[in-house]
């Protein structure tokens, strides 16, 4: 009798799990706990929410969220979040950047008000972006769309990387005119790394743990980058201003005119437009090859 009982238990479990599997697609509407008044305080998260089809569940987005067209941009700050201002939107989910001012205190205060918070970590590699897309998919009841988005992004990025691979090309990615850059241990640096380039900021990785070292001009000129990518084009830097810098005429990138700007938005966000970032970087590198 005893083994028989075991079998019946196993059968019951099996039956239940089959039932739950078949039942899952039957849930057409989001379940009761799925948030419908989301406040996104991260431009990346906003783009992800639109990408996975959760747009209708979003009530408000922060002042830096400007894509896609038509997002409900408000004066809410993503850098210095204000608990009262956020609570005013009566959200049932708040997406907060972990590196915002006093993020954990804001999170605790919102939780006291009964508002769930998703604390968004800044990814240091593309894997982190995929993780966040899947997490937001789960939280908003768009698991399958999130999975679809991730696999489509991976496929496109793989194709772009194989088309534009630029092994050992020396690249300088400029964050501002005082030569702040990004090593391969950062999100943007990981993108360059995928193309196989030599990131000249990596030499400073040991000295500067932040991943965003400020390079000395002497080193930069000696490292002789073959291509300069300007993420500070919005702040007035251009091929002309870079070429005019003292001593830079000795650099290959300046000699050969290989200086390009890249949008500061796409180069600092890890949403669906990551594909656009790869495409932009790939096209820049193709000019050097």
């Amino acid at each position: 009798m005893k083994p028989f009982k075991h079998i019946s238990v196993a059968a019951l479990i099996a039956a239940l799990s089959i039932a739950s599997l078949t039942a899952a697609p039957a849930i057409a509407k989001p379940a009761a706990h799925v948030p419908t008044r989301i406040v996104s305080l991260s431009p990346s998260a906003t783009e992800i929410l639109w990408g996975i089809g959760a747009a209708k569940q979003v009530t408000a987005v922060d002042d830096n969220s400007n894509f896609p067209v038509g997002v409900p941009t408000t004066t809410l700050s993503s850098f210095t979040p204000n608990v009262e201002a956020i609570a005013g939107y009566k959200p049932d989910l708040v997406i907060l950047q972990a590196n915002a001012t006093k993020a954990t205190a804001v999170q605790a205060a919102l939780k006291k008000l009964g508002i769930p918070v998703f604390l968004e970590q800044t990814p240091t590699a593309t894997a982190g972006a995929y993780t966040e897309i899947k997490q937001l998919g789960q939280l908003t009841g768009h698991t399958s769309q999130a999975a679809k988005l991730v696999s489509s992004m991976k496929k496109q990025i793989k194709a772009i990387v194989s088309m534009f691979a630029a092994p050992k090309i020396r690249v300088f990615h400029e964050l501002d005119s005082t030569l702040y850059s990004a090593t391969s241990k950062t999100f943007i640096g990981a993108v360059y790394k995928d193309f196989g380039v030599t990131n000249i900021a990596d030499a400073a990785a040991g000295a500067d743990q932040s991943g965003y070292p400020q390079l000395t001009a002497e080193y930069l000129i000696k490292a002789n980058p073959q291509v300069v990518v300007l993420a500070d084009g919005d702040w007035g830097e251009s091929k002309a201003t870079v070429s005019a810098r003292a001593g830079w005429a000795a650099i290959d990138a300046v000699k050969n005119g290989k200086i390009y700007t890249i949008g500061s938005d796409i180069s600092s966000r890890w949403g669906p437009r990551l594909v656009d970032l790869y495409r932009a970087v790939g096209q820049i590198l193709s000019h050097v090859n």
């Binding site: 850098f79 005082t178 001009a217």
Partner: peptide
């Protein structure tokens, strides 16, 4: 700073010193 976050980075790096970008 807070009301013009787009200048934040430029001003901060300027405050920390522009000897970095010295030219003639």
């Amino acid at each position: 700073f807070q009301s013009h976050t787009q200048i934040l980075r430029t001003v901060y790096s300027w405050i920390l010193g522009q000897l970095v970008a010295a030219d003639w």
